[in-house]
Nucleic acid binder design. Sequence first.
DNA 1: GAAACTATACCGTCTGGACGGTACAGTAAA
DNA 2: TTTACTGTACCGTCCAGACGGTATAGTTTC
Lengths: 179, 179
Amino acid sequence: MPRKPVARDAVLDAFEALLIEVGERAATLDAVAKRAGVSKGGLLYHFPNKEALITALLERLDLLADEDTALMKAAPDGSAAYFIRSSLWADTPMDRAFVAATRLAEVAHEETRRRFAAIQQRWLDVLAEDVGPDVAKAVSYMGDGLYFNAIFEGGQEGGNAGREADVDILLGVLDRLRK
Amino acid sequence: MPRKPVARDAVLDAFEALLIEVGERAATLDAVAKRAGVSKGGLLYHFPNKEALITALLERLDLLADEDTALMKAAPDGSAAYFIRSSLWADTPMDRAFVAATRLAEVAHEETRRRFAAIQQRWLDVLAEDVGPDVAKAVSYMGDGLYFNAIFEGGQEGGNAGREADVDILLGVLDRLRK
DNA sequence: GAAACTATACCGTCTGGACGGTACAGTAAA
DNA sequence: TTTACTGTACCGTCCAGACGGTATAGTTTC
């Protein structure tokens, strides 16, 4: 059998990292190839064009979102608490894929926007089972707010420190709403 | 006496509109000029380069944010309720400037990010006076969440219909937290 | 079991177009 | 006459994608 395509994953990881750190504009094919330690030709062998790169990223996102939804449902202290905690940037594969995809949605990439809407809806449904439809909405928007802020920090480690305290505050507010 | 610079505002409005509707990538100088009904030479007469265009947009945002903060403080039913209501996309000058600037922040424009952080902090301070620091955080994140979603709708009229009901729900949740 | 062949996994270079910006000559209103 | 433009021509750079080539691993044929 032929060699294993080691470059493929490296390229996708590099694309994701550049989207998070420097935005869509700077995530050029050259930059992605360089970061992945691959030639541009090698990149284009696996992903014939930039759209293919995006498609692959969205598939990764869908996969991770499915896993995450399952964990959310099974969370011992309820899906709402899990959701708030997981909305904080923690550099997990899910976080990375989500924020990276966000950058594409910002650039008016329609398919990405549709995927986002679908994922959000699924989350909302799970939340509603835990805390009812109204509080679910509130929790959903709080989570979006946390992501909104993560977006502006560009995947840095630093920003978390202050935000972790915010998560505790939000969990406290959630407890008040549970009664 | 000289003529009034009618093109200047038209250019800034066009830049804003393109950022909202098609993202930073597509908001090229040529596209902005065309949309504003101005020649490229005319555009560059007022804004010597793209950075100047961005600077002007951020100044507009700061101005509008100041006005908005004042209205927020004076809101009869409290600044928190005002904040939630105003976080829904309503195509106001403030909404437009905010979402347009968001597109720049996404592209890792540091100055824009700094401005955002400053505006958010001011809002948070005003909210805390109304509902205390903890609920203020929750309300702040809900507002960010609403903006987060507005970002993905690209300034369309349609999305609002569903979201207006959400605002009522969030106001209801806020009332529960006030007690 | 070795040559001949095939498929996969890349590398490096090139091109055409877009984009930011410059330059400048001309025009029209105040 | 100054200010506020229009319009065109042009330059350097960057970028997506095309393309031709190479290396390696497995497969077939004799």
